[in-house]
Design a protein around this nucleic acid. Sequence first.
DNA 1: ATTCAACCGTACCGTACGTTACGGTTCGGC
DNA 2: GCCGAACCGTAACGTACGGTACGGTTGAAT
Lengths: 212, 212
Amino acid sequence: MSAEAIPSERQQAVLDAVLELLVEKGDALTMTAVARRASCSKETLYKWFGDRDGLLSETVRWQASQVRAGNFDAQHLDSSALRDSLRDFAANWLSVISSRTSLALNRVAIGGAGSPPNTLGAIVLANGRFAIGERLKPVLEAGRAVGLLHFDDTEETFRTLFGLVARDVQVRLLLGEAIELKPDEILADAQRAVTQFFALYGARENPAKPGH
Amino acid sequence: MSAEAIPSERQQAVLDAVLELLVEKGDALTMTAVARRASCSKETLYKWFGDRDGLLSETVRWQASQVRAGNFDAQHLDSSALRDSLRDFAANWLSVISSRTSLALNRVAIGGAGSPPNTLGAIVLANGRFAIGERLKPVLEAGRAVGLLHFDDTEETFRTLFGLVARDVQVRLLLGEAIELKPDEILADAQRAVTQFFALYGARENPAKPGH
DNA sequence: ATTCAACCGTACCGTACGTTACGGTTCGGC
DNA sequence: GCCGAACCGTAACGTACGGTACGGTTGAAT
């Protein structure tokens, strides 16, 4: 597979097997185990993906292609619509970073990010943090255009929103703490983050009252 | 070494060698390389630290014992003193999580956090995220006691401050992005985080004007 | 001077994994 | 029905590493 090609159905099945094993075994994933789980030969793995790193890279892209959340349209943008969009984004982001597959992929990417070439880390960043940023910035700027938000630097503003949403959750999960996020907790957390975000960047009329 | 003992000077030299190699080689650290770098025998390594995991655990504790920042006293607590304390905390925390040694240790801990027993991840969390929380909470509560801060849940409040300080920096660094944080940038970032924090939790007189 | 414990350097063992090679099988095209 | 490509299952190779064993050396206590 070249870096741009879409994996065939058979190849997708292999990549799903990789995801399964990554969740189960963590970085102790072996090519033999992948071949056995996917009922394919190791020779095929190497023909399709080049080497172990290529297989993992393709797995990252495959998983990323599955979590693209719905787009946010900038139509009928009043305050509550913007708040809803941001809340949905935050909730989606929280459930992604706390999903077992995302955690497993981030772990192997981080574990291998020590010494170059650091292919996995770059791919994860491009498909995770930066992809979400590019999808959200138009929403923030649309909110600013209609006077609902006040800020200068879109990138900086997004980073603050990112911090308010993720807080210490991602690092704690990556380090193995067993945090269970139920759907309603995720929604409440997302709501809190958005409320705080509007307290910082929202239009000044109707000052928010954060704190609990 | 038992889990509680203080390493001897010779042992500290070994642990420093581990830190060096961890920064250089990442998770590809081998016992042979440690022995060679530290000019000691592998037999001694195993006698002192039990096994590879024990060596890494002791290294985490050793590094953590070196980054304890100065305590914050709650005397003469006016608004600017509290802001300074929080800013110093934030700046210290940013420089710690962006240091090469901390990054290397977090990477190996995260890489091994996939499958139990996850000793390293727990140790890193206890000495990092949770230790900093326990040291900062008294400051927040002292600020609340004198009416400078308004909040209900100390833990929740700290987590928000954590998010405002770290934002996406830690994850991006862990994934291998080459972000250089100069001291003045760290200080400016810390200042921004504290300003935003006071906008959310500060006393209502003198409303802050965040955004840049 | 002797003893003894700690330690260094190195050789060694078992194992596990990435990668390659090969024989057998399936299946679409002719 | 035949051919060739793609693929499966497995065996094999080379290497690298964690962990152990052992002889030699130092240095302090007696």
